[in-house]
Design a protein around this nucleic acid. Structure first.
Length: 476
RNA sequence: GGUCGCGUAGCCAAGUGGUUAGGCAACGGAUUGCAAAUCCGUGUACCCCGGUUCGAAUCCGGGCGCGACCUCCA
């Protein structure tokens, strides 16, 4: 069974057919580092991470590139005025744009670790690729699909007939002046900037193309440059949030394909936006969360990851704090089942005779089929929970437990929402001794002593679990 | 206005012409000296109205409601 993925470009599910058999090249639109990344950003990044993990699970050699946008992302208020997000934040805080970019890049990387993200192979910064952007601009100027006015360089959309195909926009509909002041420099209001002249800009470079003046690059050109640098002219998969479809990805296609004459991307994939309490996340509504906001409330990275991953990427996901509580319980259910299997494997709990072979096979098959179906994580989780129930009901043999744990390890490898394999028991010896004393007390019906010992163990941060198979200690 | 998506049991959420998705909660049971924890069991739900069909929550048409995008945004 091939992996089927939804291609935004064709609006259809398509079999993944990499350019080079067995290898997948993937580019993910990454963060703009002018403020703390929020959980909505991470829904997209986690989607990319799960995609990469599943491709690797399926035996593909993946090369993953995620850019860090540290320049040239123009603000709405000032789209044609030349100020970008980094500059705006700099003005607001009185710090340099370079400082701001550095701080938030580091914060982004910390969040990735907290959320159990497998790091992309390359995470290039736009500011390190000015020269490569210049090469593309130079070529587009030479080909006559870009033009220069007062030092500013624009891509001439009218020269690229396929413009609008990804987003489904008809050119005529992109009317001038709808939401943005008309820029008289442009031949056509739809034309977009490749290079902006601005000698006030903190981040400025000599124009990296013939006759180029000092300034900074437009937003879209960075992804074309970095994608081509690391992955070549044509790549298999390009991901981003749904808001990237237009204009960002539309512009990427235009400038890249006008430059190379080849198809830029095989499959475009876009993650639906996250909603919080059924409405768009925004600072003014008070439903805006960064990763650290959630961690500060006492939730773990993995709980947040579960909550952000559990719904398929193309469905809108409604994030709530209640959802985090549910995630915590669901994760615990999986952990409990794994713990029991570990105890059986380690000989700490009596093993049965069931090798769980059929159950394990069904779990693997269902999990794989779900993920192959355009990364249907909800179904893959259902397969996992069915497996939990089956394991709990079984009288697993030592080998059965061992194999079942390997299956759980695989599901964790792909989704990374359950955590590492739990340890059977690592209680300190003195507490184990106390537990033995309690057993004696209980046998002689000395409840006072037994309860006292339970309190002592509780005070040490552990709890006694009286199960049918005998009492054991677990971290409270 | 244009484009697109959604409406599933208390909540979250898969599925998509005939077979119990799953999670959380709730309820019942097992276990226990009591408790905690855990495990097992229990839900016949698909916005409304027409149509197609032997059969529709699933397809078609209409309606109502919600949301997203339309050069800030993952």
């Amino acid at each position: 069974m091939p992996i089927r993925l939804h291609n935004s470009f064709t609006r259809q599910l398509e079999d993944l057919r990499p350019i080079v058999a067995g290898k997948v090249t993937m580019y993910n639109c990454g963060p703009t580092v002018y403020s703390s990344p929020h959980i909505g950003n991470f829904r997209s990044f986690l989607f990319a991470d799960v995609l990469r993990r599943f491709l690797e699970d399926q035996g593909y050699e993946v090369t993953q590139v995620m850019n860090i946008t540290d320049v040239g992302h123009l603000t709405l208020d000032d789209v044609e005025g030349g100020e970008d997000k980094m500059e705006a934040e700099s003005k607001r805080t009185g710090r340099t744009a370079w400082d701001i970019a550095k701080q938030y890049t580091e914060e982004f990387q910390t969040c990735q670790e907290q959320l159990n993200v497998r790091l992309p192979h390359h995470m290039p910064r736009a500011t390190d690729f000015i020269e490569q952007m210049g090469e593309i601009i130079e070529d587009l100027l030479k080909k006559g699909v870009a033009y220069e006015v007062n030092g500013n360089v624009y891509f001439e959309v009218g020269k690229f007939p396929a413009y609008g195909k990804l987003s489904g926009k008809v050119l005529d509909e992109l009317e001038a002046g709808a939401r943005v002041a008309v820029n008289k420099e442009k031949k056509d209001p739809r034309d977009f900037a490749l290079w902006k002249v601005d000698d006030q800009h903190q981040m400025q470079w000599d124009g990296p193309f013939t006759g180029g003046q000092r300034g900074f690059p437009g937003w879209h050109i960075e992804c074309s440059a970095m994608s081509m640098h690391y992955l070549g002219r044509s790549i298999d998969i390009h991901t981003g949030g749904e808001d990237n479809v237009f204009p960002h990805h539309e512009c990427e296609i235009a400038q890249t394909e006008a430059h190379t004459g080849e198809r830029f991307v095989g499959i475009w994939m876009h993650a639906r936006h996250l909603l919080v309490d059924n409405t768009k996340m925004s600072k003014s509504l008070g439903n805006f969360f960064t990763v650290s906001d959630i961690l500060a409330k006492g939730y773990t990275g993995i709980e947040l990851r579960y909550a952000l991953t559990r719904v398929q990427y193309r469905q809108s996901l409604n994030f709530t704090l209640h959802g985090l509580d549910e995630a915590r319980k669901a994760i615990a259910r999986v952990a409990e089942a794994r713990k029991r299997l570990v105890r059986i494997r380690e000989g700490e709990e009596r093993a049965g005779g069931d090798d769980l072979k059929d159950v394990i096979q069904a779990a693997h098959d269902n999990f794989t089929a779900s993920m192959q179906d355009d990364l249907n994580v909800s179904e893959a989780l259902a397969a996992t929970f069915d497996f939990v129930a089956a394991c709990n009901k079984s009288e697993a043999s030592v080998d059965g437990a061992k194999q079942a744990l390997l299956a759980f390890a695989r599901f964790e490898d792909v989704l990374a929402v359950f955590g590492d394999e739990p340890v059977a028991s690592d209680a300190p010896p003195e507490l184990v001794a106390l537990l033995a004393k309690r057993k004696v007390a209980k046998a002689s019906k000395d409840w006072a002593t037994a309860d006292q010992i339970r309190d002592e163990i509780g005070a040490a941060g552990w709890k006694i679990v009286d199960a049918a198979a005998g009492a054991r200690l677990e971290k409270a």
